[in-house]
Design a protein around this nucleic acid. Sequence first.
DNA 1: GGAAAATGCTTACGCTGTAAATATTGATTT
DNA 2: AAATCAATATTTACAGCGTAAGCATTTTCC
Lengths: 186, 186
Amino acid sequence: MSYHKENLKERLIEIAWEICITESWHQINMRYVAEKAGVSPTAFYRHFKNKSDLKAELIRRGYELINEGRENANTFSSYGAHYIKFGLGYPHIYDLMFGNIDSDMSRYPDLETRSDAAFNGVIEGLKPFMPDAAEKDIRIKAVHIWASVHGLVALLRRGDSQDSKSEELKWIENNLEEYLEMTTFS
Amino acid sequence: MSYHKENLKERLIEIAWEICITESWHQINMRYVAEKAGVSPTAFYRHFKNKSDLKAELIRRGYELINEGRENANTFSSYGAHYIKFGLGYPHIYDLMFGNIDSDMSRYPDLETRSDAAFNGVIEGLKPFMPDAAEKDIRIKAVHIWASVHGLVALLRRGDSQDSKSEELKWIENNLEEYLEMTTFS
DNA sequence: GGAAAATGCTTACGCTGTAAATATTGATTT
DNA sequence: AAATCAATATTTACAGCGTAAGCATTTTCC
């Protein structure tokens, strides 16, 4: 067992990410992460200024996943569906990205840039469908779609946490693209 | 200064509520609440089992406010607008109600009941507009409206935390009812 | 008026984030 | 190759927080 770990920073991010797949950020503690990495409780602080720094890294990863999804989507609805699936598949990462904006996150301006980029992806994706519309109307439509998608994630997750999910939520979850076309492209 | 405080429980809830108007739940600590109430740090525990119990009380209050808004709304859009204004006016309470569903909240089943009641309010409000529609379609529409409203709150709040808010977000915020009719009743 | 219940206070503990000092290793220079 | 310096890890320690336990005071009820 070596004293120096190779690429401990990446390892810590990876471990935190994995924990966040099943548990929420607030239940993560540095000692547990350190233990999983096989290092002392404070080795972490050689690579991160503080816990928020680690959170910022997870958020960056989240945006990368979403952006990949957009690049691979060949229809607008499939981008939306991918987005929703991300929210359902990585709910705790999603919370970090779009949930309560902790005030300490304002120290990472690049995160906001990434968020804006994702939103602009919606606008660009919309344009082919609204070739004659004014910029403002496109942007308002984009707001609506964005809002619907995020709200739907919240609803589907709420359903998950209950024992029974309503029929229409089940249907929506299994037919995301259809639902998106029904509602947002009406 | 009396040893016994009259109605300390209500006082603690009130103090926590007021703190949550400007600060998020996670920055609240019991010692500070106790100090504001002029009691010892642990007097709290004579009235609440734990911190989550206090959170549950705040959430109940939140639902009461929302329900009042629904009772006073005379159009469907005005209910939606009220809902959104609640989210913007009490963002941290809103987070407790609709944000990351902390697992410890599952111990308060009445909260879920209240949430369901609010959702049913949407369905009932919708029915007059869709007299001939099937129940399932009404419910899917309700999901969409609910999702849009919650997502919009998230977007408007995000705008607030940035220094500049886009033109269309400003317009939407100032014309909530119009926006709702444009988007969800199309 | 005395006992019991309710409510308050004091003390204390364990968990967590993280600062500070120290040790070890790897890289660079001589 | 030896010496030095930077990077990285460890140990120790502390402060903030939730809250349990035990004791003190007040209120309630017979």
